[in-house]
Design a protein around this nucleic acid. Structure first.
Lengths: 153, 153
DNA sequence: CTGTGTGCAAACATTTTGCAAGCAG
DNA sequence: CTGCTTGCAAAATGTTTGCACACAG
């Protein structure tokens, strides 16, 4: 039984990544580690571009290419180590998946993202899936609004 | 007080569109109408491309361009007559907004989209927003899973 | 060694924009 | 008439792919 990603420390995450690579006959490379490490140490939402720039800066010696970032993000997402969401006009964003599942409250004024989780909603979602004969694999919930600060502007 | 979009017939929708255009000093053109009409009569989810192809086919005389579709969709979305969602790898999809708010259950196998609504979840969302000092304007909920048919494949 | 991974540049896909001609008001 | 709108093509953006060399196993 795999350990819950939610409570995973970096070394555990890394070990998990190695297992995934091995079982897919893929190789562990410094570029792949740099990307995983960067995602882990910045639990924020990255666009592919942002992540590329940060890895490029923090691991200048690697001279990483944007193509590698895309390829690695796909790999990580396919294996559940990162998740992505698409915000309206801001494009696709990625984040490391080593935290409890959570949803997003997004301010349309300043773009601030607040994370939250709500077990009751999760339970209702399961019920809806069941009613429709679906086997749920994932979900995405984004609430858009105006935050307190922007309301007073 | 504006009539609820949810119960709007086409002629009402069209009238609403004319008002929006007028108040923005924009013109009512056959291209814009063709797009609105097509969205109304096909209450499904369109990509920009799909919609372009369908309008092109149904209104061949107009010889419409893809740029006009993009421009009109932006206009309609800004004014709340269409809404859009971003599905994982399938890009942004648009639909006419003249129906009750609803969320989506999406099959990762075949791409089928089932619409549903759940008042209990909506209420919980309001509570979450309130707790965080947000004034809710909109929300998006997508449940991903495998539909009954795809489960047996 | 073998075969996967990488950076690079080119290719693609999608969306936006400049422009001259068309047309709504 | 005036100036918004359109189609077209070009440009801009974002993402994927082919290739030859690099390197993990």
């Amino acid at each position: 039984m795999q350990k819950d990603l939610a409570t995973m420390e970096y070394d555990e995450l890394l070990a998990e990544f190695r297992v995934i690579l091995k079982s897919n006959k893929l190789k562990f490379t410094s570029q792949r580690e740099a990307i995983l490490q960067t995602l882990y140490s910045h639990p924020q939402h990255f666009t592919s571009e942002n992540l590329y720039l940060l890895v490029k800066k923090n691991y200048a010696k690697l001279n990483i290419g944007i193509a590698t970032v895309y390829r690695t993000l796909s790999l990580l997402e396919e294996n559940g180590l990162v998740s992505s969401i698409s915000l309206g006009t801001q494009g696709k964003k990625f984040e490391i998946a080593n935290k409890p599942h959570h949803d997003h409250l997004i301010c349309e004024g300043c773009g601030e993202i607040i994370e939250f989780e709500n077990p009751k909603i999760e339970q209702l979602q399961e019920e809806i899936a069941k009613e429709n004969g679906f086997l749920l694999t994932n979900h995405l919930m984004q609430l858009y609004g105006i935050c307190k600060t922007c309301q007073t502007k």
